[in-house]
């Protein structure tokens, strides 16, 4: 059924199911890309709604599967030994009452537990990983004359961390050395935003390259992609220029 195996090996003898997967996945891909034309069009609306609906369906099924296999099966197999899980299950069910107008207040109990646990679990650990270890990693040797390059880099890290931190001081008026420090921090932030932009760009480009690889290789995909892309592009141009009223009706 899944066309990936065939595509990877350059197999041209694809069954109808695999071809349908390739065709539909190409259609949804170019449907979403169609927004790049700058025209609100029915292909984008179709792709967007199909994707959202499918994603919700999938999430529900996977969560349901987990509840059945890791909770219900355990409870059913030995209820007396797994009584704490019964309480967990009841708390889970109470969560569903969130949508009931009369009993929605009961859902606040599991929400309170989840919030309390979530915040406490993350706080107790991030005190170390997000604060103490980060401060420790910033306390670096800056007077190592045997390795001046490393000493310089260490000095720069210390300077950047301190100056950028002072830039985020909002509780007091910045005067004198604090103002100078904040100014340096501001400039350092601009340069680092540039670097972070480039890193983010690399990531998004990586995603696009992967998507294009699926669309172009092997030849069957390439042909389907060209046909689908041209069909959508021509339809959008025709609708926009010759049937603008129809186009308006077709988009939500």
């Amino acid at each position: 059924m899944d066309g990936r195996e065939g595509r990877r090996r350059g197999d041209v003898n694809l069954d109808i199911g695999s071809l349908m997967v390739i065709l539909l996945s190409t259609a949804i891909t170019f449907g979403l890309f169609s927004i790049l034309t700058g025209v609100d069009n029915p292909f984008f609306a179709w792709a967007e709604n199909i994707y959202v609906g499918g994603a919700v369906g999938m999430t529900i099924v996977v969560s349901f599967t987990w509840i059945v296999s890791n909770l219900i099966q355990k409870i059913v197999s030995n209820p007396s030994a797994n009584w704490p899980l019964i309480i967990s299950f009841i708390l889970g069910l109470m969560m569903l009452l969130r949508v009931h107008p009369k009993y929605s207040y009961l859902a606040r109990i599991p929400i309170s537990i989840a919030t309390g646990v979530g915040v406490a679990v993350s706080t107790r650990a991030i005190i170390f990983s997000g604060l103490l270890y980060q401060i420790r990693a910033t306390i670096l040797p800056i007077f190592d004359w045997r390795d001046p390059a490393t000493a310089f880099t260490n000095l720069m890290i210390v300077v950047f961390v301190i100056t950028i931190l002072t830039f985020f001081v909002y509780t007091t008026e910045l005067k004198g050395p604090l103002k100078v420090s904040s100014g340096i921090g501001r400039l350092a932030l601009f340069a680092s935003f540039g670097a972070l932009f480039a890193q983010t760009y690399m990531g998004r480009l990586g995603l696009f390259l992967g998507r294009m690889e699926t669309l172009l290789i092997p030849e069957t995909n390439f042909k389907i992609s060209v046909i689908v892309a041209l069909f959508m592009l021509i339809t959008i141009i025709v609708l926009k220029n010759y049937y603008p009223e129809t186009l308006k009706k077709l988009v939500p």
Binding site: L196, Q199, T200, Y201, M202, G203, R204, G206, L207
Partner: peptide, 9 residues
């Protein structure tokens, strides 16, 4: 850790 570019920092 291997990660996507957005998570790199």
């Amino acid at each position: 850790n291997a990660m996507i570019g957005v998570s790199a920092p």
